[in-house]
Design a protein around this nucleic acid. Structure first.
Lengths: 205, 205
DNA sequence: GCAATTCTCGGACAGGCGTCAAAAAAACAC
DNA sequence: GTGTTTTTTTGACGCCTGTCCGAGAATTGC
């Protein structure tokens, strides 16, 4: 077991773990701005209150830091629709809340979603944080499936597609809209709200 | 007008233009292997028969080179289904040939498609070759729309979605399958063949 | 054949990268 | 308050980056 891994294991909520979280957040901000390829450890440190040398005191290497950063943010993302799934009482309410939550996060956290797609792409080339990316991908697929199957339940029918396909479709529409939005197409976000409702319905048997 | 741009304009099929094409191909190979972030001009030069110093004789800068490389490959991709659109006589033949062509290129040129998604992501951060990426995106959307509307024509009905949505759905499924395939999931490619047929049908009114 | 042009190479440049280590600073124990 | 441990900084390391330049090679024009 390495030195940093030891420190992680020794305590979960002490200052060491808190510092890791803080630095992971700083990394998130930096990469969200500049992208993985253009963001160095010094840029990440400048987004925090520590110097670049300290990063290796809290993390094995750059990949270790980035893995925690993206995990923190994106595993939270995957829980964003839990409340809707649990409390929506009609298909209409469900679809409305789902669509507005999705368009909302796309609008408000566009650079963070951009970061996710950036890192997922990097994971196609580097093995560094691939495991984390795969784990998040699984989480997101489960989330989409929970949404689709709950909607089907409210409609009283069965889903008409598989979990992977459902994820691929919603992710495709989301990513496509994000790209258009970042290119200045604000209309795309409004269309997303409609398209997502249509997708939900066409996912039923 | 810059020096290199002058040379481009002066002649289209002379040695200068040929060298540009050759170097663009070398760049394509290099980036397909390592990814944009990890590929330097020296690595590109090593995939060619020239030295790294010559690249600036034929290209303004790195972005200029990459723009030509991805344009060469991907604008060709966008014409890959033209023959099917022109010659398929029944909806069944159309869907079969479309699905098998798509799964074929995914299998055989996986690293090149990975490169495309890599560069499209980079264009979300850098303005360097963004115009080229946007132009290709438009081309691909037109291609998908030509596919969908021709299939609808063969079926004797109208398409039930917009061009941007159609592109988003097919691109989402393709990208998702590519990722799974590169992670070692060979089953995903076979599923794609089925899913694409389903998508075609659900795109009709 | 010579002269002019086109092309290619290899090295230099400034600057950035991830990583590491020594020393200074801070926090803690007693 | 002193001694010990934890935390942080600073600066260095070797390597790589995109770009540029000068010298030489190859090609062309006549």
């Amino acid at each position: 077991m390495s030195a940093t891994a030891e420190r992680v294991a020794r305590s979960t909520v002490n200052k060491f773990a808190q510092r890791r979280q803080m630095l992971a957040e700083s990394a998130l901000k930096a990469i969200a701005e500049q992208g993985y390829a253009e963001t160095g450890l010094r840029a990440i440190a400048q987004h925090s209150e520590l110097s670049h040398g300290s990063l290796h005191y809290y993390f094995e290497d750059k990949d270790d830091l980035i893995a925690l950063a993206v995990w923190n943010y994106k595993s939270e993302c995957a829980r964003r629709y839990d409340d809707i799934i649990a409390t929506a009482r009609t298909p209409e309410e469900f679809a409305d809340r789902f669509a507005s939550t999705m368009t909302g996060t796309l609008r408000d956290e566009a650079t963070l979603h951009r970061l996710w797609y950036d890192l997922r792409n990097q994971a196609m080339f580097n093995t560094g944080f691939r495991d984390t990316i795969v784990a998040i991908d699984d989480l997101l697929q489960e989330m989409v499936w929970a949404v689709v199957s709950r909607f089907a339940e409210l409609e009283g029918v069965a889903p008409a597609l598989t979990p992977p396909l459902a994820y691929a479709l919603f992710d495709g529409v989301f990513q496509n809209t994000l790209i258009r939005f970042l290119r200045g197409d604000t209309q795309a976000v409004e269309n997303l709200s409609i398209e997502v409702r249509g997708l939900l319905k066409s996912a039923l048997a």
